[in-house]
Design a protein around this nucleic acid. Structure first.
Lengths: 223, 223
DNA sequence: TAGATTGTTAATCGATTAACAATC
DNA sequence: TAGATTGTTAATCGATTAACAATC
């Protein structure tokens, strides 16, 4: 239930991965999957970086934080490298995920294929609207929000995607944290204030578009 | 049509805004709007930062890059500050936006209220599926992708939201760039390679969830 | 005036870049 | 061996923090 607990010996002191590297590691993984799908088995730092707009030095440095994964003069073996990155990101374990709020955005996220491709398992959705409850969206059952705490426990949910209206986000997030959820991916355009150990990541769609318009105005092509 | 052209004298040399500050400015704007809605007219750097998990020093530094906007001993006047941030982000002008790909994600984005609240105008959607074309989603007409170039020009579209399947993303993005679009917000989990002046911003939903799971594994609450 | 808060400086921290010895 | 590419170091760059004089 708690993804931290494991029967393996706890990693002594997991070598720290710079915050800036984490987002890139996820990109590397995506690109490696693509190469693997094309039947390619090895890749160099400059090849991998070139496809992603990242310098080869950054790629090597990022990968070196995970251990000595390459062979000098040769490059990186894709299969092994992928596994190592997955392990570092926690993507080698199963994450049971719930989604809260089945409005248009929530519905789209329930149908989104990308999550399951990364090993995330959407186990349940929650809503307060009676006409939603009992339905199934993208193969995921919609449950009443009143059952949130019980179902989170029963279904061993550790991550949640919050897609409720802005007004309901803080209150709902608090319920999630109290129910023992360890991570919240927040799509509501509000800042969540949660005490304790619950991690929050935010996706603000309007802000993304605003940052793009800034880049356009400033003439920052390629950003 | 080109958002850069204006009858005002071109700003001599727009003081550079650090890349890291841009995302925060967008957050400040969101929070200021909330305060304004509550009838509050002034705010200090520590109040504004406190709500967003940003230190008061960072807030002051970010705002100072836009000019001297506060009054010592008093704080910032919200209305004026909001306007200044909007101008800096390019959010004070009208942006005509098109969305490509009306799958479940594209449909949800067409219905998303947040874009128009920030002044973005969704003018058209495009798809290849005959059953989609001619429909209206969230008040936005769905046009045939074959008409893309012509309609981009006619409707003076400058920004686009790309929500097509991964396989079609690169090709579609090239058409957009050739049609003169200046910015692409890409939701497809692929790296777009575009020559020239077109800005690209990426939102990879699966990667966001993966970064969250990393934060959970590392015990980085509050990230 | 006294208290508060900005704008800005100098010091610290972290990330990127460039270069190259190690080594396949 | 010769060519290629990693892993790592030192140098550069950029962002954050802490502190405080300026000033409302």
């Amino acid at each position: 239930m708690d993804p931290m607990s494991s029967d393996e010996p706890s990693q002594p002191s997991p070598n720290p991965i710079p915050a800036a590297a984490v987002a890139r590691l996820s990109l590397y993984l995506r690109e490696l999957r693509r190469l693997q799908g094309a039947g390619i088995e090895g890749v160099s730092s400059s090849q991998l970086g070139g496809r992603l707009g990242v310098s080869s030095a950054v790629v090597r440095r990022d990968l070196a934080t995970l251990g000595q994964l390459g062979r000098r003069g040769v490059g990186y073996e894709i299969a092994g490298l992928s596994n190592r990155i997955r392990a570092a990101l926690g993507a080698d374990q199963v994450w049971n995920v719930a989604l809260i709020g089945t409005g248009s955005l929530g519905t789209a996220l329930l149908r989104y294929r990308g999550f399951s491709e990364q090993g995330f398992r959407l186990k349940a959705a929650f809503d307060i609207r009676p006409d939603r409850i009992g339905q199934s969206v993208g193969g995921v059952p919609v449950l009443p929000l009143s059952e949130l705490e019980r179902e989170i426990k029963n279904r061993e949910i550790t991550l949640t995607i919050l897609a409720v209206p802005a007004e309901a986000a803080q209150e709902t997030a608090e319920r999630l944290a109290n129910a023992g959820v360890t991570g919240v991916l927040n799509f509501a355009p509000v800042t969540l204030n949660l005490r304790g150990e619950t991690c929050v990541a935010n996706v603000d769609l309007a802000s993304e578009l605003q940052q793009l318009s800034f880049a356009v105005v400033r003439g920052l092509a390629g950003s």
